[in-house]
């Protein structure tokens, strides 16, 4: 029995090590290729892994504001991510509280309509949104506020996880507070919000991560004006259209500079993320 168990464990370890290799290998390659020298080796597509001589050429290029707007794009994305994270979290809290705690005419109708709206694919309305933003002057070079507006405008529909969490906070707490003379607003700010720290962090984290991957709207709203790009749009152009000019290794370096802070933040808040997605999965 114990020998059987031991072989079982050994097999498990072997599988785990294999899994780890598969999962880490692309990142390892990404890092290696970002260190290739641009001057001595062609910077385009790569057919070997280890750089012939390690150099920081690609990173130096990214920080050279005369040659590239990388820092500007990075800043754009950072601004979008921060603002969206804060505002979206506020909106989600408001909507979740109203739907979880208050009973008003049209509440179920509202939830049903939002559910149905969510079944329409997001990109369907792209052209219409573009023209709406254009009317407000928020496209091309002004794409950053435009993207922020679009992201937060419809964020009320993403209330499920947060409302699910609010539902688990006993209503008797509310009632006790109301007997003591607290208003609804006071209950939300002074009681529900402090009790819901994990889910609020989760909401903010997810909202912060999304803009780093936003390619579709970002490229459509910027409409070819490089001042309005975010990193995702710019890096994607490096890979697809500037690949032949040797931008591939620069993409690797740029990608790593994006990935490191985002990953560190994520690892730091991982506990809350797990709590959020697990709760969301059970609630559905």
């Amino acid at each position: 029995m114990s020998r059987k168990k031991k072989t079982g464990l050994a097999v498990s370890y072997i599988i785990l090590i294999l899994i780890s290799i598969v999962w880490l290998f692309p990142f390892f390659c990404l890092i290696m290729q970002s260190f290739r020298s641009y001057a001595t080796e062609y910077g385009g597509m790569v057919n070997y892994l280890m750089p012939k001589n390690f150099s920081l050429d690609n990173y130096k290029f990214l920080f050279d504001t005369e040659q590239t707007k990388y820092l500007h794009w990075y800043g754009n994305t950072l601004i979008i991510a921060c603002v969206v994270s804060v505002l979206q979290t506020l909106i989600v809290i408001c909507v979740s509280y109203a739907l979880s705690r208050m009973r008003f005419a049209g509440r179920t109708a509202l939830m049903r309509i939002w559910l149905v709206l969510g079944m329409f694919p997001g990109f369907l309305t792209m052209i219409c949104l573009y023209f709406l933003l254009k009317q407000m002057g928020l496209t091309q070079a002004n794409a950053v506020p435009g993207l922020i507006l679009i992201s937060i405008a419809s964020s009320g529909m993403g209330y499920y996880v947060c409302k699910g969490y609010f539902d688990t906070i006993p209503k008797s707490l509310d009632e006790a507070a109301r007997i003591d003379g607290a208003t609804r607003a006071q209950i939300l700010v002074q009681m529900i919000v402090p009790l819901s720290k994990p889910i609020i962090i989760y909401t903010a984290l997810v909202a912060f991560l999304a803009p780093w991957c936003d390619y579709v709207f970002a490229s459509y709203v910027a409409f070819g004006n490089s001042d309005g790009y975010n990193v995702a749009v710019a890096m994607q152009r490096w890979v697809w259209t500037n690949d032949y000019q040797g931008y591939f290794t620069r993409f690797c370096a740029g990608g790593i500079l994006v990935a490191i802070p985002v990953t560190v933040l994520f690892m730091f808040l991982q506990k809350y993320y797990v709590e959020g997605i697990t709760g969301g999965a059970v609630k559905g």
């Binding site: 991560l209 780093w212 995702a232 890096m235 994607q236 890979v239 993409f251 990608g255 790593i256 990935a259």
Partner: peptide
């Protein structure tokens, strides 16, 4: 890691 980095790569 943002998907545009990992998936493009």
């Amino acid at each position: 890691v943002p998907q545009f980095v990992s998936l493009l790569y």
